[in-house]
Design a protein around this nucleic acid. Structure first.
Lengths: 223, 223
DNA sequence: GATAGTTTCATACAACTGTTTGAATTGCAA
DNA sequence: TTGCAATTCAAACAGTTGTATGAAACTATC
């Protein structure tokens, strides 16, 4: 493993091509052509095409999860083991949204790759996502500590909806821009994060102390 | 076009196989074997594989959209042209969720196919989904009438979040079940719909008449 | 500078894919 | 029945795919 040059070139080319054209129509031959390496190099260095894709996704995934946990830990330490729910949710969806959205022309290859991975769901990536549950459980724990009065079911639904809004906004950012004729500014990432956190917080706190009678009545009627 | 038997058999077999095994690893040969027809029949009756998939998806899609508009129209007529926001949202997400969720063992082939189409996003289906914007605009209109005080931006975000929660819950229903160890009952469709509608309604009405000061402060702090 | 281990390379492989072809069959109308 | 169009069929096509092979080139160690 002298210089890793080939390996690195393959990873870079693959990430860029997948980001630009999707998993569906990028072949190993496209990748090695772009990376200026031999076709057999992919199988030599990664074992298979799927393992190459998996490595790309795992790398970015780990980075996001580390950032999530860093934010969560910092918040809990500051609060003596308990963080406000909106800060927890911010740690949950912030890194993901920050990693994918932002002005399109200055979006990194990694960002565009993660968007693509979010839109097209290929088997190797699905397999990795399925192992994400343990990671999410850490947030469930933090949310339980933050909202001791809420039942587990409500915690899980809140978490589900928070992730829903974040991921769907990433997946369908183009459609939302078109539908709103540009009125929804998806380049203002912090604003998007704030919106998601705000709604998820409401979902998790509705009907308790934070919301007065009229809103509670509405929430009840809506069911 | 004597009996349409072949055509129908292909559609049924394709829908079932795609639902069970996904678009990725079902070939035309699998389909024609299951349908007991000749390989060339697919191209003869549908033109191409993609057009077969498109026809499957369009059929179910039209049914869902018709049901959505039926509910919306009924609600607006009853309210003299204006429907309560939670009823509008119910019309938006109800048919989709009802069409995909419910007890797994009694889930129709159509339901499982639509879940699959929601998870794996293949080109012919993506193309159709992109034409869905006109349909969504009708809901934007209804929401504007229902919430004349809200800005367009807020309407669009509310709509986006409502669809986000509905679609993500469908896509990740298995993961939510596993994460919550079965505590989140995804078979109780009406409960799921009520949760989505409730949160989306809060997202669209927060900070106005329905929410008192403490909640507004919280929503502000969260940003 | 010989050797052992790693990496690269051209090439072939083997299988599968959606699609097409042209002949055979069927069903219906005249 | 005859004729004509619609449908079915077996077979082949043309192209692509990821992967494997074995020799060649390189690299670092002794």
């Amino acid at each position: 493993m002298a210089s890793d040059h080939t390996r690195t070139a393959i990873l870079a080319a693959a990430e860029r091509l997948y980001a630009d054209r999707g998993f569906g129509d990028v072949t190993l031959r496209d990748i090695v052509a772009d990376a200026n390496v031999n076709l057999a190099a992919v199988n030599y260095h990664f074992g298979s095409k799927d393992e190459l894709i998996a490595e790309l996704f795992v790398t970015r995934s780990i980075a996001t999860n580390r950032e999530r946990l860093r934010e969560l830990k910092a918040a809990e330490e500051q609060g003596g083991g308990i963080a406000p729910i909106e800060v927890i949710l911010h740690a949950l969806v912030g890194p993901t949204l920050r990693g994918c959205l932002g002005p399109e022309n200055q979006r990194s290859t990694a960002a565009r790759f993660m968007i693509r991975a979010s839109i097209e769901s290929v088997p190797p990536i699905r397999r990795i996502k399925n192992r994400e549950i343990d990671h999410l459980r850490k947030f469930v724990g933090a949310m339980r500590r933050s909202l001791p009065d809420r039942s587990d079911v409500e915690i899980y639904w809140g978490l589900n909806f928070a992730l829903a809004m974040a991921h769907h906004t990433i997946r369908e950012s183009e459609r939302l821009t078109k539908l709103s004729e540009g009125k929804c500014d998806l380049d203002d990432v912090e604003d998007v994060i704030a919106r998601v956190v705000s709604v998820a917080t409401m979902a998790l706190t509705a009907g308790k102390v934070e919301m007065k009678a009229p809103a509670r009545a509405l929430a009840r009627d809506a069911r």
